[in-house]
């Protein structure tokens, strides 16, 4: 390889890298300086039948999410709802069905993904499990492509939210979708974000916390009072 070809190859590579970085800066919510109103507005126009994906994590996470959705009342009907539930979590399905009993518009679907979080098993099997979970989430996302990826992904943890959020972010990076990620931190977090919250922070468009000290500590966290 002569000197000139080498220079061309390296330059092309550097230009590509630069393009990737510029794209990342455009897409990454953490780099976006746009400030949202402290008091969100209240209109219902143009949001009818948009696709909203909600993760029902498990136990306490599902409990908090259901309490929040309960307060939406009839307005939950405005969305085309997709609920993501971990395999084997029958309590969440039960709670969801109870919530959906009260809605008029039954336009919702439940998708089951493999559970990543397994406490007590050894490192190798938990690694395999994490990979299966990633693959299951990936299949889930690819499958979504024809049905349309969601306009908003709403989650309050736990760790299962991370692979979904990052896969959606990669799709956004590639220009496949324009999904906004909204993360709600658990009421149990007073002074520090959870690990899930911390990992989702850079790619999340909005981060809502339930205690004031947290919103003071992290610039991108917003506080509107206790949500549940």
């Amino acid at each position: 390889m002569n000197e000139n070809t080498f220079t061309v190859i390296i330059s092309t590579f550097l230009i590509l890298l630069l393009c990737v970085l510029v794209r990342l800066i455009i897409v990454l919510p953490a780099c976006n300086v746009k400030q949202f109103n402290k008091e969100p507005f209240t209109t219902n126009n143009n949001i009818k039948n948009t696709k909203l994906t909600i993760l029902l994590g498990s136990g306490g996470h599902t409990g908090e999410m259901i309490r929040i959705l309960e307060q939406w009342g009839d307005k939950l009907n405005n969305f085309n709802r997709q609920y993501v539930i971990s395999s084997g979590d029958s309590t969440s399905i039960h709670k969801l069905q109870k919530l959906e009993e009260t809605t008029d518009n039954k336009d919702y679907q439940i998708d089951i993904i493999h559970r990543a979080n397994n406490i007590g098993s050894n490192k190798l099997s938990s690694l395999i499990n994490t990979l299966i979970s990633f693959k299951s989430t990936f299949n889930h996302i690819i499958y979504q492509k024809w049905r349309g990826l969601p306009k908003v992904f709403l989650t309050n943890g736990p760790g299962t939210a991370i692979p979904i959020a990052y896969l959606l972010f990669i799709c956004k990076f590639l220009g496949v979708c324009d999904t906004k990620i909204i993360y709600i931190e658990s009421l149990a977090r007073v002074n520090d974000l959870s690990l899930t919250g911390f990992l989702i922070l850079p790619i999340s468009d909005r981060i809502i916390v339930q205690w004031e000290p947290l919103s003071k500590k992290y610039k991108r966290c917003e506080y509107h009072g206790i949500l549940i």
């Binding site: 209240t42 949001i47 307060q71």
Partner: peptide, 17 residues
Amino acid sequence: PASRGAVVYNIVSEMIM
């Protein structure tokens, strides 16, 4: 104070718009 869960609905709508 009363729960403010309705705020989340507003934020979701705002993000869609």
